[in-house]
Computed example of a mutant assay.
Amino acid sequence: MRKHWKALTAVGVVILIVAVAVILINRPAPTTEQDPGPLQASGKFGFPVSDINIGEGGTTTASDGKTITGYNGTCDSAAQAAANYTHLIKDLNLGTWEQQKKVLTEVSKPGPWFEEVTSAGDLLTDAESLPAGAFDGGWYTRSDVAAGGMYRIASCEEKQGAVVQVFTGGVGARVNEAPNAFFQTVTFELAWDGDWKITDAAIVPVNQDFGGRVKDGGPMSVGTNMDGETAPVLRNELVSAFFKDKSRDGWIEYANAQR
């Protein structure tokens, strides 16, 4: 009886070993998660397209109820903050200028740059007589970030600092003439202080590099005439003209760029 029991046990062990072997042989090999590769050049003009949107990225707003704040400190959020702060640098409407300037102080740190980017608005506000040419309810300059719809992160360290360039469209007033559309690059230096704060900003002049912090001033539409109260949809010939003698390296389209 004992021999019979031992024999049955041995057979059972063999069957178990065979079953385990079959399972191991037929089990699919474990998969390894692939690191996402660099963004591919998939946009209309050959630039990579990001999955981040203009008008998003934060969880709160500034005192104007529209400027997005409350970012999480990632480099993607720095690119969104730069896009969402662009109107504070470029827009000029005397009816909203004081509020705009107040919001700019909320999302920035003091420095010589502040007086430089607000000087035109202050000059018009203090003028005894306003120049002709304001359009569509008192606008002298109105930005349209989605029309340009691109950014370049020159440098970034999460929750530390970043230098980001934003390519924006817009419309500017002209004395005794119809408004003129434009495209321009706004360059930001951002520092983390519980949120992204502007510590420097400029429309970088041609042949300058923001104190060595960017490759170049970025594309712009100088010399291209575009009448109208809205920035046109970009075309290949416009992009080629704007990027003439400018590096395309590092430029990425926002997911909701106007194309």
Rank of each mutant, 00 (worst) to 15 (best):
L92H: 10
E157C: 02
A147L: 10
W192A: 05
A178S: 12
N207H: 04
G148S: 00
A127E: 12
T125S: 13
N207C: 07
G161R: 05
V117K: 00
I153C: 07
I203R: 01
S143Y: 07
K197F: 14
W139I: 11
L92K: 05
D122N: 14
C156H: 06
A201D: 11
P179E: 07
A147Q: 00
L190K: 10
T96S: 04
E116Y: 03
A127N: 12
G138T: 14
K159H: 02
P205E: 11
E128V: 09
Q100H: 11
A134V: 06
E158F: 08
K90W: 03
D136Y: 12
I203L: 08
Q165G: 04
A178N: 08
T141E: 05
E128I: 04
R174K: 00
W192N: 00
F114Y: 04
A147I: 03
A178P: 07
G172W: 14
G133V: 10
V145Y: 07
K159N: 02
D209W: 02
Q208V: 06
E157S: 15
L92M: 05
D200R: 03
E106M: 11
V103T: 14
I89H: 10
T185W: 00
Y140F: 04
E158L: 01
E98A: 15
T187Y: 04
L130R: 00
L190N: 10
G169F: 12
A202H: 01
F135N: 13
L130Q: 09
Q160F: 01
F114S: 04
F167K: 05
W192P: 10
D91A: 11
G161Q: 09
A132Y: 06
L94W: 04
D200G: 10
G133Y: 14
Q208R: 13
F135I: 04
Y140H: 12
R152P: 15
G161A: 15
S143P: 15
Q99N: 07
G137M: 10
N93K: 08
E115N: 02
P205W: 02
V175G: 08
N180G: 11
A173R: 06
E98S: 13
V163N: 02
G95C: 13
W139V: 14
V163W: 10
V186N: 01
E106G: 08
L104R: 13
L190I: 12
A202D: 09
L124G: 06
E158P: 15
G111Y: 05
D200F: 12
K109S: 12
G170M: 01
A202I: 04
